[in-house]
Nucleic acid binder design. Sequence first.
RNA 1: UCCUCAGUAGCUCAGUUGGUUAGAGCGGCGGACUGUUAAUCCGUAGGUCGUAGGUUCAAGUCCUACCUGAGGAGCCA
Length: 479
Amino acid sequence: MRRTKITDVLKSDAIGSEIVVKGWVRTRRGNKQVNFIALNDGSTIHNLQVVADVEVFGEELLRRVTTGASIAVRGELAPSQGTGQNVELLARTLEVIGDCDVNEYPLQPKKHSLEFLREIAHLRFRTNTFSAIARVRHAMIFAVHSFFSSKGFVNIHTPIITASDAEGAGEMFQVTTLDLENIPRNEEGKIDFKEDFFGKATNLTVSGQLEGELAAMGLADIYTFGPTFRAENSNTSRHLAEFWMIEPEMAFYDLNDNMDLAEEFLKYLIQYALDNCSDDLQFLSSRLEEEEKNKKADERSMELIEKLKFVLNNEFIRLTYSEAIEILKESKPNKKGQFKYQIEGYGADLQSEHERYLVEKHFKKPVILTDYPKEIKAFYMKLNDDNKTVRAMDVLFPQIGEIIGGSQREENYDKLVARMQEMHIPVEEMWWYLDTRKFGAVPHSGFGLGFERLLLFVTGMGNIRDVIPFPRTPKNAEF
RNA sequence: UCCUCAGUAGCUCAGUUGGUUAGAGCGGCGGACUGUUAAUCCGUAGGUCGUAGGUUCAAGUCCUACCUGAGGAGCCA
């Protein structure tokens, strides 16, 4: 008999029918007559209550039904006599598939700290919190493709190994097959990358954008969704060395079109989560409330589902960098000297505290900041007519900060080359990128969404290491 | 990388101005209980106090270095 998934069992009204379920034991309790086994198979946050008659199965077998053990149960679906669930499974046969020694098994039927679970990331899929996050993560992956596909965007796999380090998006991981114990040198005594696998120095990608732009200059609307690597020594709850990024790139889009798409995209994803992950979101919401119950009322975050709906139902605030500077300059914390970095006027780089003030205190909703000074942004962003600012946009979310960074791209060949020279980008190496500005150049725009940052927001989790199964951070590549 | 805080039982923590034999809750194990819901009740085992030095008659407690983790900053998505 084929196993039925617990999510289907719990939705089933086939009372009296015989089914087989398989899964992992969460807890077992009971007395001399009857045992109750909470069984979970990962298909839902909810457990199935299996009722086992002690006389039928014997204490010896039931003793092996420990927390963490895997079992198969054939039985009859019945209305529950208890109050915690509608249906339960009256066991006819029970088989222990894999025993689990409770003295060694680290997961106990109790609350564990997220820090502890991170140390046993290979087992944390078996917890409510991480199975819920994994299911939401899957739903969001699916929704990303669904959104773009429905709009006629073409998904492009950009290379993971690249030879260009001109992106300037951060420190890169080197990729090499050279013998590190015996590195070949050229006449000048420098490392001879001609001997390396690709015949030149290569790295893991920090962004698929440049290749994405090439694809957009023929397919018009494309998106990438792939792993991204940054070798920055960042130790924060918002950074990973290996993360997943979504980068759409659209021909004939200006910055306003770009902002419209970004806002529509984020709202689509949030709506998809609400529509398809309600059980898991409900669980994550309660978990968050439990975690924050000792905090003062004004330090607690908004209830998770309420927060998601709030973002859906409100327009994102759009304002320019210069407007933001004016607001910040006149703000109370700035006048009272409460900012660590005082805002004097145009030119200042916005610190986290300033972004947080705008999003969390002043507007109390997502904010899209545009038109930053060119000095603090990347070379490829389109220069405004003022010659001072570029058509950049950062989408700022409460708690997370920058969730999206994007821009309209500079499509004018001469202006782009001038910017590259100013910023010491090797122009010759980038001939292929510049070619798109020589042959039928069009205005175009795009952005990058940090997938794990999106998940932080949707799940309400506080640490990015908890929304990816196996986080890669400085000094940590376990599992 | 910088700043701050933390590391004591399987887990979460308490441990006073340095002073005898380091405690609790949960979890485990044994027992009780005719349907439980993180069951409940009774009993029980379990510790090189992160590591290495140092100060002292005496260090879980004070000092130094290192390791690990968390929060914040920078970098960014």
